[in-house]
Design a protein around this nucleic acid. Structure first.
Lengths: 210, 210, 210, 210
DNA sequence: TATGAATGAGACTTCATTCAT
DNA sequence: AATGAATGAAGTCTCATTCAT
């Protein structure tokens, strides 16, 4: 005889488990094929739940992809912490390293987000918004960190520096995709960290010179 | 009776005009919606030619998108020339400026190419290959220019520097897309040029130090 | 411990309240969209009860729609009484007026019923039967009233007259729907009452003439 | 060997023939099941053309149903002519008879139209508009005829009379549907014609009396 | 007295592509 | 140098209903 108590809990948990299975499947497929390439039928086949069940958990495809991005971003954000030892340059380098590694481990968020960013139609509203929000949050964290490490920059300079930092990360991630992993991301992120730090110093020098 | 010779030439001219109209339409749509979002029906509606006529001009969808990329890349490549005056740093800055402007004027090639690069399906073979080829060509030009301006770098360093240069350009282009044009691309490309030049100097110094 | 008696009664009250909420929602939607357009999901969304709860209260969709018709018909039937003063013509006119007003106040029954009548599928057995029954009852009441006011008609003539009376009412209701309320229903029902009375007189004259 | 001339014409005609086959199938099904019940799959099965072919000929379901109504209305309108012999009353009766017969022979237009009129959502815009337009045209024809046969009515009276004439026709058509053909439509339309004529006389008498 | 979760069937519509002319 | 017509496959999503709890 089955234990009714456990059976009950099992049931209630099943919903979240199904949701997770759907997200896993969608994440995997979206990584390979982008927003349009991620068909509900494909997701359904991969997670072994009928398409209609997917629609029980998510309002529509947009909603599903947004959830994928949300989850991947959360795990990505969790994966890095600002180092608190060493010289300023070393700490910038250390942070870059962590971001690089996190990107390699949770690439869905960026890959999907960049795809959505490059497309311009307003359909995938929620998914796109989710990516923008994630990006804004990352920029805020970065701004705070950099302003501690290189104090003295004007607000405009800071904004430029952060934009450039993120652009470099995006670009390097893409170069890794284009060359199919043949690029040494770790080393290039180090180059990027140094370039950023040098730039910060150059800007500070300019400020002092005026 | 109509003059067959004139009729023939007329026909050929019309044919090329149709081809061009199709490419214009496809380019516009692909820019907005990416590879998957660019349906033949949509292109047909925009260029006002029946779908079957598109198949008269292009073997299939892949072929059409490849042609779009090819055309956009050609016009992009035409838009910049290496400056031959000023200090090395100034010439790097000048080149960056031109690339930035060219990107703003012929963005299809990059946008479409990046979309294809981020997706991983093997279907769009020809379109993808076209983008890779364009990129390789740009890298070659850049390598040659940079090795003239900062001689003394090892081959590996050069490759890294070029990869980083392209990554920065990609990333800045994307940041402009994400923020919907609110970013001052010209200024950021200048920052990028300076960062690149500083990096080159740093690497040269390292070489000398060893 | 809670008082089981009170709890039970409370539960029954809640149950009936839920039932009523479902009927309200279904009624509103069915009025707008007809039988096929009234989906359980739509009703569920409007009454804010899960779809499965609707199935707790009603066997199936057919059963639900039948209940909607039943309720609306009951309230419609309650709204008119045969006038007992004035000349025969005046009393016919008075009755017509009441029917017209009742139709404007409880239109669901007629609207839904007519929709079902115009469709020919055998699926909505119960709902359709409910409408037919309502109509038969209305015809009986009308027959009795008219035979009091204009005695002397044969059974066949009476049946024709009643059919025509109902047809006119249906038709005028529809004309009001088609013209979106721009029609003066009250005045037209008066016209109808007079036409009916004149016809009755004509038929009586014919009977006398034979 | 096939005659190329004939073959060519065959091809071109095939398009219209297919269109006609689709309309026939849709008409038959819509008559039985109404707008929502007319699924593209059902139509496809009945006309033996794939669903996608239906979409080559019609933009969407709304467009298809509108075309069905349009065609049925045209054939209905063609089926009656104002009689030009006999007394005014006889000519009104003759006209009513023709309209009744036409309704029995081309019922799609009314049945479908009434269904759409009773539903209130704005989705089937084109189909609904088509029905309203048909109705307006019928009303215009009727107005002209009646004003010839019973001159002297005010504009308002005329409008009322025509509205009532159409309402009666609608209602009788419906009574025939509800009672599943058990009603003698011809006789009732005669009753209706007489009621209309009597009403016209009554209104003229009122005008004279004032 | 409910309800969260699920599901097979089917809805409308668009897809890339073909082929006879 | 085209194009009208067609088509099988696949797209997203909603349907009425069930069932364990």
């Amino acid at each position: 005889m089955t234990d009714p108590g456990r059976s009950k809990r099992r049931r209630r948990v099943d919903g979240e488990l199904s949701r997770e299975r759907i997200l896993d499947a969608a994440s995997e497929i979206a990584t390979e094929r982008g927003y349009e390439g991620t068909s509900i039928a494909l997701v359904s086949a991969k997670c072994e739940l009928p398409a209609s069940s997917i629609y029980w958990h998510f309002k529509n495809k947009d909603d599903l992809i947004a959830a994928v991005i949300e989850r991947s971003f959360a795990s990505w954000l969790n994966a890095w912490q600002v180092p608190d030892e060493g010289t300023a340059r070393e700490r910038v380098q250390g942070l870059a390293m962590q971001i690089a590694k996190a990107l390699l481990e949770s690439p869905d968020f960026i890959r999907l987000g960049l795809m959505l960013a490059l497309e311009r139609r307003p359909i995938e509203a929620r998914a796109r918004a989710m990516f923008i929000q994630a990006r804004t949050q990352a920029a805020a964290t970065l701004t705070q960190t950099l302003s501690e490490l290189t104090p003295g920059l004007t607000e405009t300079q800071m904004r430029q520096l952060v934009t450039y930092a993120i652009a470099g990360a995006d670009g390097l991630f893409i170069s890794n995709e284009v060359d199919d992993g043949a690029v040494d991301l770790i080393e290039l992120f180090d180059l990027h960290a140094n370039a950023l730090y040098s730039t910060a110093l150059r800007l500070l020098a300019e400020n002092a010179g005026r």
